[in-house]
């Protein structure tokens, strides 16, 4: 007596086992999520121990686009992750009745299409939809997450200006290889607060995209 049984407990989202599923199972479940708008919890190497909840909007062999869910039940922007980084996918339809009752259901694709064939396509496509992105870099120690405004994409690099966790523009843009990007978030609540807090970007950081080798 006096023991609240564990059976009814709500474990935080990160309490799931980190297992490696077979690629065939992963792709079957991603496809089911995409076809039937089934929410899934996705374990991925980009941020181990921090699964993504969402609905798959598009899958390619290289990248997967997800309409994100927070608390399992509220749409919250988009994430693109490398398909090869996905280690497990679990359907989670608990909140489907709640989601279906929302005005924004089913989740819409981003306004501008995103080419999931490469990191370049993903970064460019995400920037077409939102000037400020959140992203992880595969070369950074795990947990390295930046929020930044894209300034220029000149393959194989891109330039960006970061927003600090204090919600202010950092000084000076940075350059990185675009294929180091391992996950891109955009139009999430958190990014919107940081972007809004930072205000207008410095004038010289206007987004310019041009194909590799093109003259300015």
């Amino acid at each position: 007596m006096g023991e609240v049984a564990i059976a009814a407990c709500h474990v935080p989202l990160w309490g799931v086992k980190n297992t490696q599923q077979k690629p065939s199972k992963i792709s079957r479940r991603l496809e089911q999520s995409w076809r039937e708008a089934v929410p899934v919890r996705i374990q991925h190497e980009g941020a181990p121990g921090e699964p993504l909840d969402g609905i798959v909007l598009d899958v390619s062999a290289e990248w997967t686009l997800i309409a994100r869910l927070r608390d399992g039940a509220y749409l919250d922007g988009y994430s693109a992750i490398r398909t090869a980084d996905i280690s497990a996918v679990r359907p989670d339809d608990r909140f489907l009745p709640f989601l279906k009752a929302q005005r924004n259901w089913p989740p819409a694709r981003p306004t501008h299409p995103i080419d999931l064939g490469s990191a370049q396509g993903v970064v460019r496509g995400a920037l077409d939809n939102a000037p400020v992105l959140g992203f992880y870099r595969s070369t950074a120690p795990s947990g390295g997450f930046w929020i930044a405004r894209g300034i220029a994409v000149v393959e194989p690099h891109w330039w960006y200006l970061t927003i600090s966790p204090e919600g202010t523009w950092d000084e000076g843009d940075e350059r990185a290889r675009i294929d180091e990007v391992s996950r891109v978030d955009f139009l999430t609540d958190y990014i919107s607060v940081l972007q809004e807090s930072a205000g207008s970007p410095p004038e010289d950081s206007v987004m310019v995209t041009r194909p590799a080798g093109a003259a300015r």
Binding site: H10, R70, D71, G72, A73, Y74, R94, F95, P97, F98, A101
Partner: peptide, 10 residues
Amino acid sequence: DDYSRAVHAV
């Protein structure tokens, strides 16, 4: 909070 609101709604 949002989580308990969703759980209760379902």
